Simulated scan of single mutants.
Amino acid sequence: RRVYYLYDVPGGEERGGHAHRVLYQLIVAASGSFDVILDDGRERRIVSLNRPYYGLLVRPGIWRELNNFSSGAVSLVLASELYDENDYIREYSDFLKEKEIPLSNV
């Protein structure tokens, strides 16, 4: 239902840093490379995207951060829903509360 791009991300900067309650995203490195950090509240994984014919499907309830952008990297994101600010969880502590994971376990 929505498509957007991330581009011209300065070196050392991150994007993302949130989770969604409903929205699914397919993330593709249309150009260059970057890492996607995925966190379900208990385990973190890093997926490196560097080929335009691979995509990463991120389901709702997963905290995501994008970093380590190469020069000229372009991230193509296909989203299952239109933009809805209420679907975002922007604070990691709120994310853990919604997942019912005590901060002391992190």
Rank of each mutant, 00 (worst) to 15 (best):
P10K: 00
L96F: 10
F34W: 07
P10N: 00
L76T: 13
R15D: 14
N50I: 03
L26Y: 00
P52T: 12
L82H: 03
V3M: 14
P102S: 08
F34R: 06
E14D: 07
P102E: 08
I46W: 05
A19H: 06
S31I: 13
A29S: 06
G32E: 09
G12I: 01
P60H: 07
Y7L: 14
V77P: 07
L23Y: 01
G16Q: 03
I89T: 13
R59I: 02
D35P: 06
L66P: 13
E100S: 05
S71K: 07
Y24A: 04
I46A: 07
G12E: 04
Y92I: 15
V22S: 12
L6S: 15
E43P: 08
Y92P: 11
L23S: 06
D94Y: 07
L38K: 02
E81L: 14
G12Y: 00
L82Q: 04
N105H: 10
F34E: 08
V36C: 08
L6E: 10
G72N: 01
E81W: 04
I27K: 00
N86P: 12
K99H: 09
F69N: 13
S48L: 09
D39Y: 01
G41Y: 11
G61Y: 08
E81A: 10
E100Y: 04
A30D: 14
G12N: 02
G16N: 02
V106Q: 05
S71W: 08
R90L: 13
G61H: 04
L49I: 08
V9M: 08
V106F: 01
N68D: 11
D84R: 12
